[in-house]
């Protein structure tokens, strides 16, 4: 089976004043379906940029990224938005929930972009909240939930459309030790039981330990050395 994510000769640089700063240099990476990959590296190494490119939030300067066989570097702005809605689930460091919407409504947001009926949406949201064990708090607003609970709602929002890949940018970066462990347990479970492909950027070695494969980025280059965690 071909890899679910294929990154071929991807480079990306940012402009700072008159200078072009290279962030990613000729990256090649394959991620298999059902993989749990951690991207590690010091600040400024380009790991978040790589994650943004895989999730189609940003554009490559050169190279190709294929996800599920689709060349996302060739899609238009609107096609990318549609593609993200179907194929990518996002887990952010600061949860990025919409404060004026309840947990239920936050999880329902990605489903509004599908053709599902109201009843079907309700069923999907209830199931996603059941998976993260927050069904009984569906009517709470983000401000009424703890950090760990908010991140669980964010995970429910990420999985509600059953996307091909989950991308997580420092998902435990804003949580205490116990909440962080709960989130990692949940991600672990999603990977093992639901066979979700997870790509996670993290600084935290404890978080990275949960991934099956850890790849290191340094100054825009992807190290060939990678560790495989025993599970």
């Amino acid at each position: 089976m071909p890899p679910i994510v294929e990154i071929i000769n991807v480079s990306k640089s940012y402009r700072r004043g008159n200078q072009m700063i290279p962030v990613l240099i000729d990256i090649n990476l394959d991620i298999e379906e059902g993989e749990f990959l951690a991207l590690m590296g010091p600040s400024g190494s380009g790991k978040s940029t790589l994650l943004n490119l895989i999730a189609a939030l940003d554009h490559v300067d050169s190279g190709t990224i294929r996800v599920g066989g689709v060349d996302i570097t060739a899609l238009s702005e609107n096609e990318l938005a549609q593609w993200r809605a179907v194929n990518v689930g996002f887990i952010f460091q600061f949860y990025n929930l919409i404060p004026v919407l309840t947990a239920f409504e936050n999880v329902e947001l990605p489903l509004l972009l599908t053709g599902l009926s109201r009843k079907e949406r309700e069923e999907h949201v209830a199931m996603a909240l059941r998976i993260v064990n927050l069904e009984e708090r569906m009517d709470h607003y983000p401000a009424q939930l703890s950090g760990g609970e908010q991140q669980r709602v964010a995970i429910a929002r990420a999985i509600v459309t059953d996307p091909a890949i989950l991308v997580a940018d420092e998902p435990t970066g804003d949580l205490d030790r116990i909440a962080a462990r709960e989130i990692l347990d949940l991600m672990d479970r999603l990977n093992r039981e639901s066979h979700k492909t997870i790509i996670m950027v993290t600084h935290d070695p404890k978080a990275a330990e949960r991934a099956r494969i850890i790849r290191h980025l340094d100054k825009g280059f992807l190290n060939n050395v990678y560790s495989q965690n025993p599970h």
Partner: peptide, 14 residues
């Protein structure tokens, strides 16, 4: 601003 970014990331169009 962050909410707008989130909505766009989730797939909402401009």
């Amino acid at each position: 601003t962050a909410e707008i970014g989130t909505l766009r990331a989730l797939g909402f169009k401009r």
